[in-house]
């Protein structure tokens, strides 16, 4: 807490300086912006968890959030599909826009918002239903499918896009929990894809998985970015380097540095970023 108080004073200035010194590379800059956050502050009761976060998330790219645990990565991620609404003590200030519409505006309906912004969690959390029903759940509640054949097609398409079809096509009636950890996580990704979202948020999707399963998910993420905008929180810097095009570094609730992934990892501007990626803390 004393650390946080200290950085509260000097960070904004430093951040501005850092951003000026490190202009975003062409590749990232040229793309249309899908999500734009401006001066976002989040409080859990009296705990000021996020401080003045401002960031643009480019469309059809993978953006990675890195930082030591407890720094507010998940909190920020959950702001983007308003999952924080489910936490009573959570209060959010600032503006988050998707396609230039403020998602915290009164006219926005969270249920529809979340259909457009899907989420995959740290621990695979398949519903206690069959594999088929896990996928069909979203399309059904949103009225996207009519009739059995429609649903069958949707389920097959989603599983195929998540690269899971070959493994489960003969056991669609089995419970989702009967799959292995990695398969469960891909099932959760397929479940998210099934409602055709525009943005997919992933909160440390591989932290509960073994290296092989992790590799498969990383491949999948790379494929998915052609159709979706992906934001991923990760603990592993190698993973961020492998899958993302843009990286943002959080520290003690502050967005310290953001930019082209290559630049962040090879030429970080801020001292704290440097310390973190060289493994001096975290």
């Amino acid at each position: 807490m004393t650390d946080a108080a200290m950085s509260e004073d000097n960070t904004p200035k430093e951040l501005e300086a850092a951003l000026e010194k490190a202009p975003e590379t062409e590749a990232v800059k040229a793309l249309p912006i899908k999500v734009r956050a401006t001066d976002v502050n989040v409080f859990y009761g009296d705990n000021h968890a996020l401080k003045d976060v401002t960031i643009d998330i480019p469309e059809h790219r993978v953006t990675a959030f890195i930082g030591p645990s407890g720094c507010g990565k998940s909190t920020f991620l959950r702001c983007i599909n308003r999952m924080n609404d489910t936490i009573d003590i959570c209060r959010i200030e600032g503006k988050i826009e998707i396609d230039d519409r403020d998602i915290y505006d009164r006219s926005i309906d969270v249920v529809q918002l979340r259909a457009k912004v899907g989420m995959v969690f740290q621990k695979p959390n398949p519903f206690p239903k069959s594999i088929y029903d896990n996928i069909a759940y979203g399309p059904r509640i949103h009225g996207m499918v009519a009739g059995k054949t429609d649903t069958d097609e949707m389920v097959e398409a989603s599983l195929k896009r998540a690269g899971l079809w070959a493994e489960v096509k003969d056991r669609l009636a089995q419970p989702g929990t009967s799959l292995s950890g990695g398969q469960q996580q891909r099932l959760c990704i397929a479940r998210a894809i099934a409602v055709s979202p525009q943005v997919i948020l992933m909160d440390e999707p591989c932290s509960a998985l073994d290296p092989i399963a992790t590799a498969r998910i990383e491949e999948l993420i790379d494929e998915l970015r052609r159709n979706f905008t992906i934001v991923i929180v990760t603990h592993s810097m190698q993973q961020a380097a492998r899958v993302s095009q843009k990286t943002a570094f959080f520290h003690l609730g502050v967005l310290v540095e953001q930019g082209n992934t290559e630049q962040i990892f090879t030429n970080p501007v801020d001292k704290r970023t440097q310390d973190y990626i060289t493994g001096r803390f975290g």
């Binding site: 309906d109 249920v111 529809q112 509640i141 949103h142 009225g143």
Partner: peptide, 10 residues
């Protein structure tokens, strides 16, 4: 309009 109706129903 179809979506809005569905949402209202939900």
């Amino acid at each position: 309009t179809r979506e809005a109706a569905l949402i209202r129903k939900r």
